[in-house]
Amino acid sequence: MLGVARRMLRRSDLAEDAVQDALVLIWRRAAQFDPGRGSARGWIYTILRNRCLTMLRQEAREVSTDAADLDTTPLPEVLAQAHGGLEDATGLRQCLDRLDAPTRDAILASYVMGHSHGEIAGRLDSPLGTVKARMRRGLIKLRECLS
């Protein structure tokens, strides 16, 4: 859980906060969990991811004073690690491999690092509409490939 949070938040201190928040939420909401609706693991990670996304989208972010907290791994490397970390045999890996590299990276950046459409467009220096349309086409392909 900490690894997922730090990869998204790029800071280990915030990652710990996010995991703690998520664990408290999990305790509080345990009664709402319905095993018939899905795995507990998925449920736990969804709560964690949502917490991280909320923290990422918050405008005012305190600045970390401790450089040791910062994750300075360059973004392409983070994406390559996530992509490379998927086992070759998994459907997700095979289907992601069929997408063109910018689309694949955009989808990975959103899931793995919590980037918004706007952030992805800024990084690729492409118009927002183009990026959205490209990601949507990619997601359709991915869904068809995986179904």
Binding site: G3, R6, R41, G42, Q81, G91, V112
Partner: peptide, 13 residues
């Protein structure tokens, strides 16, 4: 579940 395998690619800390 389709995207969950990506959670496992994070480095455990």
């Amino acid at each position: 579940q389709r995207f969950a395998p990506l959670d496992d690619t994070a480095t455990p800390l």
